[in-house]
Write a protein that binds this DNA or RNA. Structure first.
Length: 495
RNA sequence: CCGCCCGUAGCUCAGUCGGUAGAGCAGCAGACUUUUAAUCUGUGGGUCGAAGGUUCGAUUCCUUCCGGGCGGACCA
């Protein structure tokens, strides 16, 4: 905060105040986007025009370059969200007070100008300023493209505003993120889904397995958890009679932070009555294709989608392979062979307190998950690790659940939703009991009896899916780190 | 949590085999009335991430800590 630049700029602001100029203008005079002025000129001066026909106009933006020619003339690059336009300012063309404003201008300041748009001798479309107004004085030096922009990742994440203002490309990534979410809503709207909002504060951290954040409500004197999943409230809505619901919202998990994990992240969860996990596979495929075509472009070749240097095939139908089959393929062990699984786990640093199916899941994560590059539906998980999914009729040992993986990353997780309240209660009780024995902090500590009671009123057969929006955005923007698609990724406190 | 790497001016980066530091941009002063990363001349700017140790002397070597990056472990 303390530096020579700040002092000089504060002095300039004080000087302007003496002249009766507010360095933080209350209002902006009428204006058009920078790019609109350029366009208007081009429209009036088609290709081949010899004598330029000036177009009057006014615009505003941030000054990011200033070139003086002598004491009385200057060229400025002015940027707004739409792009850039050059200002030409000549002492003879503006009032003495305006010239004074100009001489106290710094890089980073926001400036409004009005005049005629025409071409300079060198061909640059330029606003020849007749009237100008300082909109905002900046006290900090903006990172400048010609001096290398903002490179240090820590600075880019902590001071995202500086990162964004320094580089229009970075702004584009976040604009794309916004469009991805817009297109998801559009896609779901087209299928008749209703968007809902459910509580972030939960009395029981259910609907998934993850360590939750704990907080406390003072007047109720009650501990609360930040939600780790959206699942249970949404399925209560199916009981209530809504048939297609979804929520796009923030989840919180008190776990690791790395290139693909942020403590808070955005999930889409949707539930649809009268379908099952096969319906969810179709929906997932269609949604990904819709997003690739609308975000990456209508001419995108689905069989050659590049992501972080890898070429992936998104042509539906995606590969479908069962959990047990792939487990066998990658570990050489039958997942039902308890002795072999335990022996394998013992050779690694996996807690001995874990039961058989927890061990299977641990081995799976280590040996299988990272190998799946092309989008793959991994189906029929062991029932023991799927307390919210229906069992397969022909083999109750496995459940109608799939996870879709891509580049070793889980993109989505779906079930044929369990709606038998008696079975659900038994599975919850088993899960809580096991969690205590295994000292597994990711498992809910108590049974959500209210949810079981909701099922007693009858939930229609349904398919449901949860999709990690951040990872979808990474895929669509071809980014490698979650920090580059979150505006404000979580950072440790400084000092 | 483990391994490797990084932290020097507002920004991007050099550098010091141990003798308290440089460049470009930015700033300030000056020259130039159509520039395009404008050019030219002059000039100010640093507790070299923090603390401790070794040393006559540490920004440099060592230790610890803080923050970050990449990879691994764990989780979505």
């Amino acid at each position: 905060m303390e530096n020579e630049y700040r002092e000089i700029r504060l002095q300039k602001a004080a000087r302007l105040r003496e002249l009766g100029v507010d360095p933080y203008a209350l209002r902006t005079p009428e204006r058009q986007p920078c790019a609109a002025l350029v366009k208007a000129f081009e429209a009036n001066n088609p290709e081949g025009t010899t004598e330029p026909k000036p177009v009057p106009g006014a615009t505003a933006g941030r000054v990011l370059s200033l070139r003086m020619m002598g004491k009385k003339v200057a060229f400025l690059d002015v940027w707004d969200e739409s792009g850039k336009i050059q200002f030409y300012i000549n002492q003879k063309e503006v009032s003495p007070q305006e010239w004074e404003v100009f001489t106290n201008l710094d890089l980073g300041d926001w400036l409004w100008g009005k005049g005629d748009v025409t071409r300079t001798k060198t061909g640059e479309i330029t606003l020849f300023v007749k009237t100008l107004k300082l909109l905002t004085k900046s006290l900090a030096v903006p990172p400048l493209e010609k001096s290398g922009g903002l490179q240090e990742k820590e600075l880019r994440y902590r001071k995202r505003y500086a990162d964004l203002l320094a580089d229009p490309e970075r702004r584009k990534t976040f604009a794309t993120r916004s469009r991805v979410i817009f297109e998801i809503r559009k896609f779901l709207d087209g299928r008749g889904f209703m968007e809902v909002e459910t509580p972030v504060l939960h009395a029981i951290a259910g609907g998934g397995t993850a360590r939750p954040f704990v907080t406390h409500h003072n007047t109720l004197d009650q501990d609360l958890y930040l939600r780790i999943a959206l699942e249970l409230p949404l399925k209560r809505l199916l009981v209530g009679g809504f048939e297609k619901v979804y929520e796009i919202g923030r989840n919180f998990r008190n776990e690791g932070v790395d290139a693909t994990h942020n403590p808070e992240f955005t999930m889409l969860e949707l539930y649809q009555a009268y379908t099952d996990y096969y319906g969810m596979m179709e929906l997932m495929e269609s949604m990904l294709v819709h997003l690739l075509k609308t975000i990456r472009g209508a001419d995108t070749d689905l069989s050659k989608v590049e992501w972080d240097g890898q070429v992936l095939n998104f042509t539906p139908p995606f590969r479908r392979v069962s959990y047990g089959e792939l487990f066998k393929e990658c570990t050489g062990i039958d997942m039902n062979d308890e002795a072999a699984v335990r022996a394998k786990a013992a050779s690694l640093d996996i807690p001995k307190t874990f039961g058989h199916w927890k061990l299977v899941d641990e081995l799976f994560d280590r040996f299988v998950q990272g190998k799946l590059d092309n989008p793959t539906f991994l189906t029929d998980y062991p029932t023991a690790i799927c307390p919210l999914a229906k069992k397969k009729v022909e083999n109750p040992q496995v459940a109608e659940r799939f996870e879709i993986f891509c580049k070793g990353m889980e993109l989505g997780n779906a079930f044929s939703e369990l709606n038998d309240p008696v079975d659900q209660l038994a599975r919850f009780e088993e899960q809580v009991k096991k969690g205590k024995v295994e000292k597994d902090e990711e498992v809910p500590k108590e049974v959500d009896y209210d949810y079981v009671e909701a099922l007693e009123y009858g939930m229609p057969p349904a398919g449901g899916i949860g999709i990690g929006i951040d990872r979808i955005v990474m895929l669509m923007t071809n980014q490698h780190s979650i920090r580059d698609i979150l505006l404000f990724p979580h950072m440790r406190k400084e000092e």
